[in-house]
Nucleic acid binder design. Structure first.
Lengths: 190, 190
DNA sequence: TCAATGTTGAACATCATGTTCGAGTATCGT
DNA sequence: ACGATACTCGAACATGATGTTCAACATTGA
């Protein structure tokens, strides 16, 4: 890929995130991003359809980053009953505080929310598929991804009032009994 | 309150919901609502700041409706371990299918999502306060409201693939073990 | 009936979006 | 190092939504 293309996209993504932090996603015009990135208007539209499209490509980077950390952890077989996978997620958020604050905060708008929930959903879906549950995997994954997302957003918006491991432990406490219950091979739902 | 005011507001709310169903919340202009409601432009702005403000007042109606049903249920003391409070919520959504479809569906935009989560959060917060939990009530309420919202949205968007009682039962299965665990008076979180 | 209050529509300023195009400029393969 | 290629620029433009204003008109409630 052409160096100029890489450069342009990078500048636009950086400008976007910086501006989200300052002014919030919703109250942000394409022109603002252009000015900050010092990129021509027409150039923007040769790369992205709109603000949302730009944000998505940025999110792809975050997604890959997080996935990488999860995969890295997967090789070191974690003992069951540990908070590892959750820990990795909350850790990731904590280490990238600045960015998460910008993007999750009230400022962040809904762009992030949807993408993040989809990501969590996928992770959980895989995880639950191998486990197998008593009720439709879709539902369980939807349920837990919503729960995690919501907790994560709260945590970030409150400016990380607990250390990540502790948050992970709390979620674990709320989550695993339900998973256990839905795992036990028992009669169908009434 | 003046009859004309009531009439105007009502027409605007009705037009809004009808149009959400047809075109989706985001792709909807104030002018569209005006045309449908047959209300003058300047009139709109004497009542509402913008589209979101109009939507909020509509949501207030829905909220009161739901709250009413929950209160009505509360007097008939439900036996513990039943799906009642959840059942009422899913029932409410099912009976008002058309509206929920419009407002939760992909069409609905995020306006509904936030308001609904806040509502669920409040309900759960009250509920958990009397119960008392081992971990911060805020967190538990955030966690469960996210989980419920997510499940509800999924259910509506899939066009109600299960009967409401069944959905309630599934949520109950996923929820109550976690609540139980967080209720037992046990050592603090590590 | 009448004073108060609500509604109207058209005009207006403002602002963001997304497209176009010719001229300039950096990049990559050779 | 060179030239074809691909990228960038900026200014201009059409479009369309927003929110405000005002004077004339209509409905209400007492």
């Amino acid at each position: 890929m052409d160096r100029r293309v890489r450069r342009t996209r990078r500048m636009l993504q950086d400008a976007l995130v910086a501006l989200i932090e300052e002014r919030g996603y919703e109250r942000l015009t394409v022109q603002d991003v252009l000015d900050r990135a010092d990129v021509g208007r027409s150039t923007f539209y040769t790369h992205f359809r709109d603000k949302d499209a730009l944000f998505m490509t940025w999110f792809d980077g975050l997604r890959e980053d997080l996935r990488g950390e999860l995969d890295a952890m997967a090789v070191g077989h974690q003992p069951p009953g540990t908070t590892r996978p959750l820990g990795v997620i909350f850790d990731h958020a904590y280490r990238n505080r600045r960015v998460y604050r910008a993007v999750c905060g009230r400022q962040g708008g809904n762009a992030f929310t949807h993408l993040m929930q989809r990501l969590l959903f996928e992770l959980l879906h895989e995880h639950l598929c191998v486990a197998g549950t008593r009720l439709p995997v879709e539902i369980a994954a939807e349920y837990y991804s919503g729960a995690l997302l919501s907790t994560l957003l709260w945590w970030v918006r409150q400016d990380f009032p607990y250390p990540p491991e502790e948050l992970a432990a709390m979620c674990q406490l709320l989550t695993s009994p339900g998973v256990m219950a839905s795992l036990t091979p028992a009669p169908h739902i009434p």
